[in-house]
């Protein structure tokens, strides 16, 4: 059965007919063709699918598109400025080599931005705990932690 769905994605209103069983991540990747949001597991643990929904980082593989009805979603494609300037958190990942293969990166950045909004000056331990829901197999987290510390500072400074 198909159901009608509408929400805002990266500032744009979108409406579509989807199968009831469509996950939010499937809607984003397959229907909207925003392929920056990734799927790395099927148990809601890796966090590669993290997007922002109404101001909170959530795992878009972990619930239905229908549950996001009327919501405002930001994906990794909607984070940099329209002129291409990176968000301070994205810039911090680049400066601190916080990514290698790049697959977990969008989820890391989306979670980090949400985390940093509430934690402008986090400790290393707080950052590590905040990453419980994001797996990375490349970096050993060392530079991701550094990136988030720097990104949080930059965000707080309004850069």
């Amino acid at each position: 059965m198909a159901v009608k769905i509408s929400m805002k994605v990266n500032g744009k209103a979108v409406t579509a007919e989807v199968e009831d069983r469509t996950l939010l991540v499937t809607f984003i990747r397959e229907h909207l063709r925003l392929t920056g949001t990734h799927v790395g597991c099927d148990t809601a643990q890796c966090g590669a699918c993290t997007v922002d929904m109404d101001g909170r980082a959530v795992k878009s593989c972990a619930f239905l598109a229908m549950q996001a009805e009327g919501a405002s979603i930001t994906t990794i494609e909607g984070v940099a400025k329209p002129d291409g300037t990176l968000h301070p958190m994205q810039a911090a990942f680049k400066e601190n080599h916080g990514l290698q293969c790049g697959f977990c990166t969008p989820g890391m950045v989306m979670n980090a931005i949400d985390f940093a909004r509430g934690n402008p000056n986090p400790t290393e331990q707080q950052i590590r705990e905040a990453l419980d829901g994001n797996l990375c197999r490349c970096t050993g987290y060392h530079n991701i932690v550094k990136s988030i510390a720097a990104g949080a500072k930059a965000m707080a400074a309004g850069k």
Partner: peptide
């Protein structure tokens, strides 16, 4: 800084 990072950081990989 890595040349490939911009595309990975913006979801353009």
């Amino acid at each position: 800084e890595r040349k490939e990072d911009y595309r990975f950081l913006t979801g353009a990989g």
